[in-house]
């Protein structure tokens, strides 16, 4: 008996050992490429000199942070980020919900499939590719201006105007992602009990009323969950998209935190200052994502992690 217990526990130890070995390579990669850079964040509090490295550069305390808050441009960069990211979240959600509700009404199968195939596609294409598409149709003599001019409006310099650049960024992002975002909502709609719709019809509810009183309430939990989980994205304006579409003319309305850190910190080799700005963003992001997870747990009984 004693003997058997010992071999059993020995086997569990062996299995545990195998588990540790399995997970080890991944942990090593995380240590090098995720945790070592976190350690490198120390340089936000240093006057970092590449030749000296993190270990022997001089410490300057919060100097880079106070410098950051004294810059008039930094407020603009944060405002741009929040306005652009917020606009993307709101309009992506709205259009995806509307599209899902309308698509659910389409009974012609081939049409439904074709439209789905088309609208999911841009999500998989790189912003490098899509930026060229956008530039071609929104340039001063591009298709959009040609159409507008036939109605006697314009032309508009969409890519070079501080009034139009943000709407263009938000609009083209929605264009890229609304289809793909609608997948989750479509799944939510199809899981609603058809009996509820029948009951509402018998009570004389028209389509609008059924959408309002049956479909939307049925989608509400998933809408709420995604809204909460999207909250931390408020600081992600979308580097790839903006980097491929902006220019100095529209820095005023289109420069976001990530493009700013890239230009000033990495290209301008102001490593310490760039890292300080990035760290500030990461910390707010961490607080937001932890709060979002708590909120999701509390209000929807689900969570991200």
């Amino acid at each position: 008996m004693q003997q058997r217990k010992r071999t059993a526990s020995k086997r569990i130890t062996n299995i545990n050992l195998t588990y540790h070995f399995m997970i080890l390579p991944g942990i090593i990669f995380l240590l090098i490429f995720n945790y070592a850079p976190m350690f490198g964040l120390i340089m936000a509090f240093q006057d970092y000199v590449p030749a000296k490295g993190v270990f022997s550069s001089d410490f300057v305390g919060f100097q880079h942070f106070s410098y950051m808050f004294s810059l008039p441009s930094i407020g603009r960069v944060f405002t741009n980020t929040i306005v652009i990211a917020g606009g993307k979240i709101i309009f992506n959600t709205l259009l995806a919900i509307v599209f899902a509700i309308l698509l659910n009404e389409v009974r012609v199968r081939w049409l439904k499939k074709s439209v789905q195939t088309i609208v999911y596609l841009p999500n998989f294409l790189s912003w490098v590719v899509l930026a060229s598409v956008v530039v071609n149709i929104f340039s001063l003599d591009g298709s959009v201006n040609q159409i507008l001019e036939s109605f006697g409006i314009g032309p508009f310099n969409f890519l070079g105007s501080n009034q139009l650049f943000r709407p263009l960024i938000i609009g083209t992002d929605v264009w890229k992602s609304f289809g793909f975002n609608s997948i989750v909502y479509l799944a939510a709609i199809t899981s609603i009990d058809p009996g509820l719709h029948e009951a509402a019809s018998i009570d004389g509810a028209n389509w609008w009323r059924r959408v309002w009183h049956v479909t939307l309430p049925g989608m509400l939990p998933i809408i709420l969950l995604l809204a909460i989980l999207n909250l931390p994205n408020i600081l992600n304006g979308g580097f790839d998209q903006i980097y491929n579409l902006y220019s100095p003319v529209v820095y005023q309305s289109g420069d976001i935190i990530d493009t700013y850190v890239y230009r000033v910190g990495l290209m301008g080799r102001d490593y310490s200052f760039g890292t300080a700005v990035g760290l500030f963003k990461s910390i707010i992001g961490l607080v937001l994502i932890l709060s979002a997870n708590q909120a999701a747990k509390k209000y929807t009984e689900r969570q991200l992690f």
Binding site: N16, H20, I23, I27, L30, I32, F33, N34, Y35, A36, P37, M38, F39, G40, L41, M43, P50, D258, V261, Y262, G265, L266, Y271, G274, T275, G278, L279, K281, S282, G285, L286, I289, L290, F305
Partner: peptide, 26 residues
């Protein structure tokens, strides 16, 4: 045994990062 330590290690890597410049320097 040790699962939760690894799990927290993994999740923290998802939630927080060193950012563009420290990663570039590594």
């Amino acid at each position: 045994k040790g699962r939760s330590i690894y799990m927290n290690f993994l999740i923290f890597a998802m939630l927080f990062n060193g950012g563009m410049i420290p990663t570039y320097l590594v």
